[in-house]
Every structure is written in C-alpha cells, then in structure tokens.
Simulated scan of single mutants.
Amino acid sequence: MRESPHLCRMKVTFGGLVISAGICGILSFAFLATSLGTEYWYIIETNPMNMSDFENMSSHSGLWSINEGGKTQTDSIDSFKADFSRYTETELQMLNMHSAIVVLLPLSLVLLLLGGICGLVSSLARSPVLLTGTASYFFICSLLTLCGVSLYIIYSHQALVETERRVGLEGLAYVRTSFGWSLGLAWLSYGMELLTGILLLIAARMAKLQHSSPTMT
C-alpha cells in the first residue's frame, strides 16, 4: 500500500509539530525551574550618595529568600511558620498571598514534568484524544503559572504600599524598585506553556485527519 503525497506531507508536518511542542515544553520547564531557583524576582536599589540611613537597603529577593549585601537570608520570608497573631490584617493578607504563590508555581513545575511524559506518549501513539488531553493539561499548567506570577506582582505592589505607609514617601525618595529577570523567566515559561498546548492541539487535528483520510494502493 502506498500513501498519497498529501498524507506524506501531513506526516512531516505532524512530526515537526510534536518536536516543536516538545522543545517548547522543555523550555517552559527550564525557564520556570530557573526562575524558582534564583533570587531576582524583585530588586531594591538605593543611591548611597543621597542617603544616610538606608545604605544597606539594596537587595534582590526570590520567593523564599532575600539577598542583602551579598548575604542570603533564607528565613526572611516564611509564611507557613509565621506567628499570625502579631500581624495586622493587611500583613495577614500578604502572607496568604505569599503562601499561595509558593504553592502554585512549584505545583505548575511538577505538572509540567508530568505533562512532558504525557506529551511523549500521546505523540508516539498519534492519538487525537491523547494529544488534545495533553494540550488541555498544558493550558491548565499555564493557568497555574499565570495565577502565581500575577499574585506575586500584586503581592509586591501591596508590600511597597505598606512600606510607603510606614516610612513615608520621603524615606523612599532615593529607593528604586523593579521586577527582575527571574520574574521575566516565569513569564516566558507561561508563554511557552501556551505555545506547547496550541501546537499539540494542531497536532491532534492533523492526527485526526490522518486517521480519517483514505489510503491509495
């Protein structure tokens, strides 16, 4: 039996799609893992030429630690072991957000690893159902990543507002805050997760067409 040239072109396209989806999935995992393991989510920079009391405020932080003056404080953020009785309502809200962040993003990372296995199996099986299910799985992962990153941005903004309330605008006049490249990697991971899901959906469609196309002898 000889397959039509149309089917051969579809096979090449299907292989290219699943390979591209695999590369995107690997990149999304690598980006998110690197993001979670680094301490450049949020950066605080000061101008020592114009400051007298806040020379040591320059720092960069990750999800679980803060690096100040080259020294990492791993216990500076611990929303699970905190004594909630001594915090205000606003601080409790921030702690709850931080707890959600450090659950959502690592969970998304674990699910990405499992999604890679599902993607490999569904691609080898050329099953439209499995490919569609794996694509939906990656969309769920992307949603978890999006929720975690968005919560972190809200959390950081609220922390800055709370700091301004405590020390006043004059106290932060020579302090510049910004999001770091670790957060950027998390956003890239989110984009790669979406792209992986889209490519798998297209591959599922092509696999379905392959199964329904007649063959020529």
Results as ranks from 00 to 15, higher is better:
68 E>R: 15
195 L>K: 13
86 R>N: 13
128 P>K: 04
156 S>V: 06
157 H>K: 15
124 L>Y: 01
160 L>H: 12
197 G>V: 14
86 R>F: 12
61 S>I: 04
209 L>R: 15
217 T>W: 10
102 V>S: 02
84 F>G: 07
163 T>L: 14
30 A>Y: 07
21 A>V: 00
103 V>S: 14
177 T>M: 06
177 T>C: 05
203 A>F: 00
186 A>P: 03
175 V>E: 06
6 H>V: 11
48 P>L: 10
145 T>G: 11
52 S>D: 08
123 S>R: 00
36 L>A: 04
40 Y>N: 14
192 M>Y: 10
64 W>R: 12
124 L>H: 02
109 L>Y: 03
112 L>D: 05
62 G>H: 00
49 M>R: 14
41 W>L: 01
195 L>V: 14
150 S>F: 11
93 Q>R: 14
50 N>T: 04
80 F>A: 09
76 S>D: 07
204 A>K: 04
104 L>T: 09
168 G>R: 08
78 D>S: 12
88 T>Y: 09
9 R>M: 09
102 V>D: 00
47 N>C: 05
15 G>C: 01
2 R>V: 13
216 M>G: 10
18 V>A: 00
10 M>A: 15
53 D>V: 12
11 K>I: 05
27 L>E: 06
173 A>L: 06
25 G>I: 03
135 A>P: 02
176 R>C: 03
35 S>H: 10
185 L>R: 15
101 I>V: 06
128 P>T: 01
121 V>R: 02
73 Q>Y: 14
9 R>C: 06
94 M>A: 15
215 T>M: 11
4 S>C: 10
7 L>P: 01
209 L>A: 14
121 V>Y: 07
80 F>T: 06
209 L>V: 15
203 A>C: 05
172 L>I: 13
85 S>F: 01
142 S>C: 13
115 G>T: 05
202 I>D: 10
10 M>E: 05
200 L>V: 00
62 G>A: 07
98 H>C: 02
49 M>Y: 12
89 E>T: 15
49 M>L: 13
41 W>G: 03
187 W>E: 10
171 G>H: 07
121 V>Q: 00
73 Q>I: 11
171 G>E: 11
7 L>E: 09
32 L>F: 06
107 L>K: 08
39 E>C: 06
109 L>N: 03
116 G>E: 04
47 N>D: 15
178 S>N: 12
177 T>V: 11
191 G>H: 05
28 S>C: 03
86 R>Y: 14
167 V>C: 10
21 A>I: 00
7 L>R: 12
142 S>W: 05
25 G>N: 06
158 Q>I: 11
166 R>F: 11
68 E>W: 04
93 Q>I: 07
65 S>W: 06
62 G>S: 07
186 A>Q: 05
51 M>L: 08
197 G>W: 03
140 I>S: 12
98 H>L: 03
64 W>M: 09
107 L>D: 05
155 Y>A: 03
185 L>E: 08
200 L>C: 08
116 G>K: 04
88 T>W: 07
134 T>I: 08
171 G>R: 09
11 K>W: 08
65 S>G: 06
85 S>P: 04
88 T>M: 07
148 G>N: 05
